[in-house]
């Protein structure tokens, strides 16, 4: 079977899988991004069992990464667990929305041996707690950081640099419109 044929089979597999998942774990949203990638949204407390099911019964043995998207306007974090099934060559992103206030999530370090590294990073960069995850409170990338977690949307990198570093002298740019106005029509137009 050629690659295209394989893809068709996989697409059907993905659709059926998503239906199964929706029935079993009440996924409130399913999004098929492409033939070999779908996203599922599950409830915070059902995540662990959903991941466990995908890993042991559906062949999604590989955890590609764990990440989070900060929706500051709506007050929640969207965690994303990206799994991969080598036999079907398909990715599935399992997503969970958690509140932005005192965020905390169940740890998955017992499902994947590298899970705790991601959780340690998320704790440091977003302030999301994973109770029970090994070394979750240790510094990961930062050293002696006392500000808010720096990957949060409200952390202003430009302001951070302005506060911390001296501005280089002689760096001034002129506004095109204002320059032309001053030079060509200083007394016309807006008053």
């Amino acid at each position: 079977m050629g690659y295209a044929g394989l893809q068709l089979v996989n697409t059907m597999f993905m659709q059926e899988l998503c239906e199964r998942m929706t029935r079993q774990f009440d996924c409130d949203q399913v999004m098929h991004q492409k033939d070999d990638l779908s996203f599922l949204r599950v409830d915070r407390d059902r995540l662990e069992s959903a991941l466990m099911y995908l890993k042991t019964h559906e062949g999604f043995v590989h955890l590609s990464f764990v990440t989070v998207i900060d929706y500051i306007e709506d007050g929640f974090f969207r965690l994303n667990y990206m799994l991969y099934n080598y036999d079907k060559a398909t990715n599935i992103g399992v997503q969970v929305d958690i509140t932005r206030e005192n965020p905390s999530m169940h740890s998955i370090h017992h499902l994947w041996a590298q899970g705790w590294t991601y959780q340690r990073e998320l704790k440091e960069m977003y302030g999301i707690d994973f109770p029970g995850s090994p070394r979750v409170d240790e510094e990961f990338v930062l050293e002696g950081w006392d500000g808010i977690p720096p990957m949060l949307r409200e952390f202003d990198t430009a302001k951070f640099c302005e506060d911390r570093f001296a501005k280089r002298d002689g760096r001034e740019s002129q506004d095109i419109k204002q320059t032309m106005r001053d030079n060509l029509y200083p007394e016309r137009g807006e008053s």
Partner: peptide, 20 residues
């Protein structure tokens, strides 16, 4: 608006970008 995950095989294995 959308999200995707793309990947390729670098010298060390699966290298991917998740873009939202």
């Amino acid at each position: 608006a959308g999200q995707t995950y793309v990947k390729s095989e670098c010298t060390r294995g699966e290298y991917g970008y998740f873009l939202v």
